[in-house]
Computed example of a mutant assay.
Amino acid sequence: MRQILRDRIVAICDKKIAAKGEGVGVSFYAFFANKNDEPQSLMEVAKWWIETHQLDHFVKAQKVKLLIEAGL
């Protein structure tokens, strides 16, 4: 996954954790606006989320952040 998307995911996870605590869950849709204005990026994150890591629809933001920071 491109670094720009990795940076976006970490920033959004940090924001959600700060607002709602370490137990907050996210889906890969949390990293995009409600518009379909970035279909390639959405599919890139979806592939990482679903195919590569086989994550459930909602996952703890802390876990997602740790995976991204580990370069996985």
Results as ranks from 00 to 15, higher is better:
residue 16 K to L: 13
residue 67 L to A: 04
residue 23 G to L: 08
residue 12 I to F: 04
residue 13 C to N: 10
residue 67 L to R: 02
residue 31 F to R: 03
residue 48 W to C: 00
residue 9 I to A: 00
residue 41 S to Q: 14
residue 66 L to M: 13
residue 59 V to W: 02
residue 15 K to M: 14
residue 15 K to W: 06
residue 54 Q to W: 01
residue 37 D to F: 03
residue 36 N to Y: 10
residue 53 H to V: 05
residue 4 I to H: 05
residue 59 V to P: 01
residue 30 A to L: 03
residue 23 G to P: 01
residue 57 H to F: 11
residue 23 G to W: 03
residue 49 W to E: 06
residue 22 E to Y: 08
residue 30 A to I: 03
residue 44 E to W: 05
residue 47 K to H: 09
residue 46 A to T: 00
residue 40 Q to M: 06
residue 15 K to T: 13
residue 46 A to N: 07
residue 62 Q to Y: 04
residue 14 D to E: 13
residue 62 Q to P: 01
residue 63 K to V: 13
residue 26 V to N: 04
residue 55 L to C: 05
residue 5 L to W: 07
residue 20 K to R: 12
residue 55 L to D: 00
residue 46 A to R: 13
residue 47 K to Q: 05
residue 8 R to D: 05
residue 34 N to Y: 07
residue 41 S to I: 02
residue 68 I to S: 03
residue 44 E to R: 10
residue 30 A to R: 10
residue 43 M to E: 15
residue 66 L to H: 13
residue 70 A to N: 14
residue 53 H to M: 10
residue 24 V to Y: 10
residue 49 W to T: 08
residue 16 K to A: 04
residue 1 M to E: 07
residue 7 D to E: 15
residue 57 H to C: 08
residue 48 W to Y: 14
residue 5 L to E: 10
residue 19 A to I: 00
residue 3 Q to D: 13
residue 51 E to L: 05
residue 17 I to N: 06
residue 7 D to T: 14
residue 4 I to W: 08
residue 21 G to M: 04
residue 28 F to C: 09
residue 38 E to M: 12
residue 33 A to T: 08
residue 4 I to N: 07
residue 47 K to S: 09
residue 50 I to G: 02
residue 69 E to A: 05
residue 34 N to D: 15
residue 2 R to K: 08
residue 31 F to H: 07
residue 60 K to D: 02
residue 36 N to R: 10
residue 53 H to L: 14
residue 67 L to M: 15
residue 9 I to R: 00
residue 45 V to G: 01
residue 65 K to C: 04
residue 1 M to I: 13
residue 68 I to F: 05
residue 28 F to L: 10
residue 4 I to R: 08
residue 23 G to M: 09
residue 38 E to T: 13
residue 5 L to H: 08
residue 39 P to G: 13
residue 52 T to L: 04
residue 11 A to G: 09
residue 41 S to E: 11
residue 26 V to E: 01
residue 56 D to P: 14
residue 54 Q to N: 12
residue 23 G to Q: 10
residue 16 K to D: 01
residue 10 V to N: 02
residue 66 L to V: 03
residue 48 W to L: 04
residue 6 R to I: 00
residue 62 Q to V: 14
residue 10 V to R: 03
residue 49 W to L: 06
residue 5 L to T: 01
residue 2 R to E: 15
residue 31 F to W: 10
residue 14 D to P: 05
residue 35 K to E: 12
residue 14 D to N: 13
residue 25 G to T: 09
residue 8 R to N: 09
residue 50 I to E: 09
residue 7 D to G: 03
residue 70 A to I: 12
residue 42 L to M: 14
residue 3 Q to M: 07
residue 12 I to Y: 06
residue 58 F to A: 02
residue 50 I to V: 13
residue 9 I to C: 02
residue 12 I to A: 02
residue 21 G to A: 04
residue 1 M to L: 11
residue 33 A to H: 08
residue 65 K to T: 03
residue 27 S to L: 06
residue 44 E to P: 00
residue 54 Q to T: 02
residue 9 I to P: 01
residue 60 K to S: 06
residue 11 A to L: 15
residue 7 D to M: 09
residue 44 E to M: 10
residue 69 E to M: 09
residue 30 A to E: 14
residue 65 K to P: 00
